[in-house]
Write a protein that binds this DNA or RNA. Sequence first.
RNA 1: CGGGACGUAGCGCAGUCUGGUAGCGCACACGGCUGGGGGCCGUGUGGUCGGAGGUUCGAAUCCUCUCGUCCCGACCA
Length: 571
Amino acid sequence: MRYSNCFVPTLRDVPADAEVISHQLLLRAGYIRRVTSGVYDYLPLALRVLRRVEAVIREEMERAGAQELLMPMVQPTELWQKSERLAKYGPELLRFKDRHGHESCLGPTHEEVICDLMSRELRSYKQLPINLYQIQNKFRDEIRPRFGLMRGREFVMKDAYSFHVDDESLMAEYKNMFDAYTRIFTRLGLHFRAVEADTGSIGGSDSHEFHVLADSGEDLIAHCDSCDYAANVEKAIATRDMAAGSAAALGELATPKLTTAEEVAAFVGVEPGLLIKTLVYRVAGGEMDGQVIAACVRGDDQLQDVKLMHLLQADAIDMATDEEIENIGGITGFIGPVGLNAPVYLDSSLAKTGGMVAGSNKRDVHLIGLDVERDINQAHFADLRETRAGDRCSCGGKMALSRGIEVGQVFALGRRYTEPMEVLFQNQQGRREVATMGCYGIGVSRLMAAVVEQCHDQGGIAWPDILAPFKVVLISMGKSEAVRIASMDLYTQLQAAGIEVLWDERNERPGVKFKDAELIGIPVQIVIGDRGLKEGKAEFGRRGSERRELPLLELMSATISELAGNSGASL
RNA sequence: CGGGACGUAGCGCAGUCUGGUAGCGCACACGGCUGGGGGCCGUGUGGUCGGAGGUUCGAAUCCUCUCGUCCCGACCA
């Protein structure tokens, strides 16, 4: 491709509304443009990169035995009623009516559609197991799209769905997909980590997320420094040395205007870990819909609300209003687990503790000497605290926290969808059975952004060879006929060899060409100019390091061997 | 939706407080000088100042409403 024919609108300044580096660089380097909130144009360079990401994904999915298909982006809303997911997923579904008044939605994911298909076509156990996948645009009406491609409303996703006769077969495929994902992210040159995950709105039992490690990541993941344990903090379980209180009789203590855990602890003269922090939530969805409940963690812990949500089997939990708190007999700022007219859930670290300090549900008064077993009736215990750096893993190692960008997730769904969607088959005994199911997603467009987050420098994007939109940039320096002819010659040879080359034959100054080449991130640079040409030489080098002089005749072989070691299967 | 910031040329910004003919840099077009890391000189093109309404002799500037963008929270590939 000749640069002068290439649509690559690079920007010198960083657009003011781009916050994260991938967003900034993809805009500056002419890869993407915003159309509307969370919706982007993928310009030619971006599309070339996306196609490469997809190629790796396709290769590995096919190798893992999955088959590609393509489902529609428009889905009838009835399917979501049938799967009983409308209430939970509702707000993210972009719904609309057609001219007949029939309600449809834009597909945010395709469990419903694939189950509908399978329910029609699946007859016999002999058809199982099967794994079907697609690469397609999804639309989720996100509450807050942000960070460019990292959280768009429309985005490209690879989604795969597998169906099985039993859970043993499902778990084998789950493992198979886990391994395929590991190969994909490895081939893409990413620094990533697979972690145990909450199943979120998708549902099901087992789940792992794949995170690209980057400080700009939206997720927090906890991992052990001495064993393999790693989990999203929404799920991570760990322990730490908990302060133990000394047994004492239950008493009251005046604590005027002291409402935060730190203030109360300082006033009473105990460490914050001996406080019980009580939070009141209103449950939305599930069997407890509308109920107000209280949850307790230690004063120096944070409540992990996803854990609580899961425990309650709720779609959402919201902080209760002052009025709702009063209705259950509490006072904002002095809420405690004793005598509250609501279910109380305590973090397991509070089990069997004594000598604790907690709110009394009376203004300006806290309880001291509280013994959880003795003084709280009907307490439910569960893991509710958020893991912190330095906590202890069950293996004895220390937990550390890192930021991650979630680029993939695998789920063992079980019969969460196949049951309501009636995906049935006849088993060997001729009886009808519900199939069991897994689903596996990769955020393809997000992956492109995640790679940029991990692969960039001062000059711009530093694509790994396998993803670069062009492998080689050929920079012609100077306007002489000799330069033009030598460049043209090499350009033709590279193309003939199937190496994707961007020939910068623009009438621009050298600085501009170098800056653009580095900004858009082409791995190999070849410079042909009058200076070297006199001696029959040109410059050859990798983006970001020194170029060396090479005879013109050696450029082809140098390029081929430079790319051979790094670009995987294709040049 | 709650909290904050902001909308002035393709991009980055000044001007708004204190109302008085809409500016700067880059980009873009043309000419010239240049020619190995976003070069220099000159001449130009381009903006209903997000939109609507109001106050005023006069509004980018003041007031009201509205639309949009970005950041923090709930969501998630």
